[in-house]
Design a protein around this nucleic acid. Structure first.
Length: 223
DNA sequence: GATTGATCATAC
DNA sequence: GTATGATCAATC
């Protein structure tokens, strides 16, 4: 068991030490069997990186590194370092959205400090052979924050007004609201326009790949 | 080829 | 059952 890092520099040192290693090698260190593909192991890499860096295991509504307030995100990138997928941030508390504002949102809290760990993830490259990339520590710039806040207010506003069924993945410049459940039959309670409640699919906030690409580009340019 | 909606595994 | 960790795969 790796102990929790006590400072951000310590976390960065650990993450840098992983850069260049393969998922197969990391699996060997952790005693984890790594399958060739991720169809039945979608969160495996993220959970392995968590363990290797000393994140608090398990599911809680807390940052991965509680003491230092840092969220860990592994992110699949192609050979050029470009993100290949959107990034899940958090589930949306549909029933509590009406009384929330941006400053209270779990989205703004989670994204205040993020450690991005790129994973080389070309389609077809077997999981054990994929390499861990150089980590990037992010705090949103003013421009990035206002982009996020604008999208959040638009999307949370619709949910709060009972307009959730008007939301598709097309809405939002940097954010998206998309289904986040076990399957399409999954249901949660959400506000309805007239003050009543409806049952609908659970949803989550995701960062668009184009947005995370701009974040990673900025961080690499500044490095 | 990029994007959206659907889905998979595990912890508690 | 709901949270965490995400990627898959049908569609645009």
């Amino acid at each position: 068991m790796t102990p929790a890092p006590s400072s951000i520099p310590e976390l960065l040192d650990r993450a840098r030490a992983l850069a260049g290693r393969t998922i197969g090698e990391l699996g060997g260190d952790l005693g984890v069997a790594v399958p060739d593909d991720q169809r039945r192991a979608k969160g495996l890499v993220g959970q392995m990186i968590e363990r290797a860096l000393g994140a608090t295991a398990g599911s809680r509504a807390e940052p991965d590194f509680v003491q230092i307030g840092v969220e860990l995100k592994s992110i699949p990138v192609n050979r050029q370092g470009r993100p290949q997928e959107s990034t899940f941030v958090c589930t949306i508390p549909l029933s509590r959205i009406p009384e929330m504002d941006w400053g209270q949102s779990s989205l703004s809290h989670k994204l205040a400090r993020v450690l991005w760990v790129p994973i080389e993830s070309e389609r077809g490259l077997p999981l054990p052979q994929r390499r861990i990339g150089y980590p990037l520590f992010w705090t949103p710039s003013h421009a990035e924050t206002s982009l996020l806040q604008d999208d959040w207010e638009e999307l949370a506003g619709r949910i709060g007004r009972g307009d959730i069924e008007s939301i598709t993945g097309h809405i939002g410049r940097c954010l998206q609201v998309r289904p986040k459940g076990a399957n399409s039959r999954d249901r949660r309670r959400a506000p309805e326009a007239d003050g009543a409640w409806m049952m609908t699919m659970p949803r989550g906030f995701y960062l668009r790949a184009s947005f995370t690409e701009s974040i990673l580009r900025r961080l690499r340019e500044e490095a």
